[in-house]
């Protein structure tokens, strides 16, 4: 079955120059391994196609049940240069949570998702 990340995580995003960062936090401890397995750099890069022009980097924070993504070249130059409404990348958090991941029925019932 397909599950949207909004069911598995909350998030906060911010900026550093032309790079947006998105911290994705598991809503329950049991969801974290699923995030690590499914929400990869490649998947996130694909998700933000046409929006993120540079690389996507991912860092793991198991202590917080969180992943941190750096989305390079995604803010039209960033800060004061950018013409974007969201020049500081503050809404990239929920944009990432639009992503769907595929999990087996077995796993979803184990995690209490069905």
């Amino acid at each position: 079955m397909k599950v949207q990340l909004t069911k598995l995580a909350h998030a906060r995003s911010g900026d550093k120059g032309d790079t947006a960062n998105v911290g994705v936090i598991a809503l329950r401890e049991g969801f974290y391994p699923l995030l690590v397995r499914e929400v990869t750099e490649a998947r996130v890069k694909e998700h933000f196609k046409g929006i993120v022009k540079g690389d996507v980097e991912r860092f793991e924070l198991p202590n917080l049940g969180a992943l941190n993504f750096l989305l390079h070249e995604s803010l039209d130059g960033g800060g004061t240069v950018s013409l974007m409404t969201d020049a500081q990348g503050k809404t990239f958090s929920t944009a990432l949570l639009r992503m769907y991941i595929e999990i087996s029925d077995d796993e979803s019932s184990k995690l209490g998702l069905t």
């Binding site: 909350h10 911290g23 917080l64 969180a66 941190n68």
Partner: peptide, 14 residues
Amino acid sequence: PSVTEQLLYEMGDP
């Protein structure tokens, strides 16, 4: 959760 969100704000390499 509220503190975790702030910890991740504007984070680079943790």
